[in-house]
Simulated scan of single mutants.
Amino acid sequence: MSGGRKPRPTPNLSALTSPSNTGPSLLISGFTDTPQPAVEDVPVEQITPRATQPRRSFPEAALEQLAASIRTHGVLQPLAVLERPGGYDLIAGERRLRAAKRAGLTRVPVKVFKGLNEAQVRQLAAVENLQREDLNPVDETDAIMDILAAELALPREELSGRLERWKTLRMKDPALGRATEEERAQIARLEELFRSLSKGDWTSFVANRLPILRLPTDLLEAVRSGAVEYTKAVALRRLPEAERAALLAEAGTQSLQALRKEVARRTAALDAQSESDVTALWETLRSPAMKRRLEQLPENEQARARALLGELSGLLQGSPAPTKR
């Protein structure tokens, strides 16, 4: 057996892009048949990337490598575009478009879709991008979430909460005896989708992949660019931004176990420092010098200072002093 990289499972997307026995899937809602786009060569200046492209990270070295390949072999896989008056909106293939421009091409092959609404464009973009070998974990998770939102007919902003609730329901009640009919239907559809996507169990996706989308911006971009693995980014999330910046630069050469130990050590040190700072502040406030300074204040400032000290004492002891109205 070779020591090479294990081949990535190929998603079976027919369930997402073909009509079913009960009518078209939500992915092609509004079509009477699966769309069959024409393939044409179009000028690159007529293609406009969309702001909501699922793929967002384009490492410079990889882009130059693709440009070199395009100079030799051309664009082997057509881009996907939506026809509009005067040009085309890009659905999928922004990296190929950028590399083609860098390689000096003036025209590129594209699959031209017509008459799609915004929801259908986003769904097709997600499906197209999900099949890329080099898609990073952040954009892959985003693409899967776009597909799930479309197929389950849910707004994207509500989807994470629903998935987590269904996961808790499944874990506590595997037979779904306490679930509503609608919940059982949605979970059944969810399981069907993950079988088609070849992405394993949906509860594992909820537990292990959804947290990626909650990462702070610096860690999210590091995962997108390939600078750090997402499991390491999740470990680094425990640290404040200033602390994790230096550790982020070293994370690529550390094992996950070593990184977690270092994060735990730094977190403990920060907690100890915080406790020390609070103790020092408390001792300062109780010192004779501070008492003398308080007595030297004008009467109105003394009253205000005593009220603030009383409120602080109450907060630290778990019983905040009442605020005067």
Rank of each mutant, 00 (worst) to 15 (best):
A269Y: 10
L270A: 06
L270K: 05
L270P: 04
D271T: 07
A272Q: 12
A272C: 02
Q273P: 05
S274I: 02
S274F: 03
E275S: 10
S276Y: 01
S276W: 02
S276Q: 11
D277K: 11
V278K: 07
V278H: 06
V278G: 04
T279A: 13
T279Y: 07
T279P: 00
A280W: 01
A280R: 14
L281H: 07
L281Y: 05
W282I: 08
E283H: 06
E283K: 12
T284L: 15
L285F: 04
R286Y: 01
R286K: 11
P288S: 14
P288I: 01
A289P: 05
A289C: 02
K291Y: 08
R292P: 08
R292C: 08
R292E: 15
R292F: 04
R293I: 01
L294K: 02
L294W: 00
E295M: 12
E295V: 07
E295W: 10
E295P: 07
L297W: 06
E299F: 01
E299G: 07
N300I: 11
Q302H: 07
Q302P: 07
Q302R: 15
A303M: 13
A303G: 09
R304I: 07
R304N: 13
A305Q: 07
A305F: 00
A305V: 06
R306V: 06
A307L: 06
A307S: 15
L308V: 11
L309D: 01
G310H: 04
E311L: 12
E311Y: 15
L312P: 01
L312Q: 09
L312D: 01
S313W: 10
G314N: 08
G314L: 03
G314V: 03
L315G: 03
L315K: 15
L316A: 11
L316E: 07
L316N: 05
